[in-house]
Design a binder for these strands. Sequence first.
DNA 1: CGAATTTTTGATTTATCTCAACAACCGTGG
DNA 2: CCACGGTTGTTGAGATAAATCAAAAATTCG
Lengths: 245, 245
Amino acid sequence: MSAALDFRVVPLPHPALRPCATCAVRRISVCDAIPEPFLARLGGAATGGVARPGILFIEEGEPAADFLNIVSGTARIYKLLPDGRRQITGFAKGGDFLGLAVSNTYAFSAEAIDTVRYCRFSHSRLRALMRDFPALEERVLKFASSELVAAQEQMLLLGRKSARERVASFLLAQSDAYAQRSPACFVLPMPRGDIADYLGLTIETVVRTLRKLRNEGLIEVSNAQDVVIRDHMSLRSLANGLRAA
Amino acid sequence: MSAALDFRVVPLPHPALRPCATCAVRRISVCDAIPEPFLARLGGAATGGVARPGILFIEEGEPAADFLNIVSGTARIYKLLPDGRRQITGFAKGGDFLGLAVSNTYAFSAEAIDTVRYCRFSHSRLRALMRDFPALEERVLKFASSELVAAQEQMLLLGRKSARERVASFLLAQSDAYAQRSPACFVLPMPRGDIADYLGLTIETVVRTLRKLRNEGLIEVSNAQDVVIRDHMSLRSLANGLRAA
DNA sequence: CGAATTTTTGATTTATCTCAACAACCGTGG
DNA sequence: CCACGGTTGTTGAGATAAATCAAAAATTCG
């Protein structure tokens, strides 16, 4: 259903209105490989887009024509089984690069959780940029490598960790990604169903496990979004499968 | 324990004795990106090695100094939890490329299942080659992308498929990789414990599931290694989670 | 051949799922 | 502002797929 892809996905008027020079995520994204003087060319190769919450902006099985760079917001990256079972393979946020494929169709779907802003590069345009700026290809390879390492870690979690260990691992990863202060306190932008589908659990098990960790004083969860990590040490050893937690 | 790494891993005498020109996996590996006239340079950048069955030749956490290209044999790629739980993230075989890392330590271990022959490239040497032959970097990126797609598929398996669906998926993947004839018949080079740790199951569950598939006439398993797929259709729909199987 | 390992089978337990109900939250419109 | 319907989150009781425990059979290898 390509229709779903386009609905409420508003292309921004003109590249010039989104200058790469002032892009908030340029320095942490693959675009950092393009030297300042060539930013105009980079911007010219991209099309900006916005996906409102809930909107599917990449669909598994569709022709993979573009690479995407997330500018802001958070998206769920997932695969489905025919009967609707869903595995979320990751959450993409500002600075992330999407669309690496082997075949010429996307291997995953991407859906906006909150409002997602992105830049879209056609394969041919990005390939041309990579030819002219080898540092860009190197940067993309670095990104792919880190995704691969993260994927292996997630396979360990899905294949061998208990529900408690999975939730602890997830909270720590979120904390590392978002929390600045100590004690680490942060927001979960995704609903419980997303956490469950990311950790290979059910919603109920995620909720029960969070409650238990709260009762044990390892974390605080006032409302559904806000989390405070109270005992980082214990949570860490739990996440790593050390019994002494 | 670096000692374990070196034990029985015999470096081949001289690069000239392993000419890339006659390498059986050159055309299917990243090395295919290097034009014929430059094969001597490629060979000069590599060190050959052999790992006998059971030998650890990459260890998680050790400094990631080299990339490896598998020439022949099969290796288990895995991660461990402190208490010994193991997740095999993949099986590397001839033509595969190992060692992509973000940090400067390996994120996984690699152990020979049967005798594994490989070529070892230091990071600096391969980086120099990629600089001089952009097609090589492109090839490595392609490989990383396909690994990433495979990893996402495996996350779906580990997070959302039943034991039956996992075993069916595994058999089909093995069949696609090895079997030529129809009805597909092939050999499982790895023991049951490896299959279990790859699929996030126990040995007993793998065995019981194979028996059940055999009793239902979907496959034949005479001894522990040899498998024949009798009903490819049913196995495929089982693997994809379609209830009609 | 005999010890060690791997594979297979059976009996039982358990972590997690399923099902069911209720509570909290959210945006909408009266 | 508040009532409303729909979504998301939480809790409990019971079901179950897969794990664990135990032991026998088959295979490998010195």
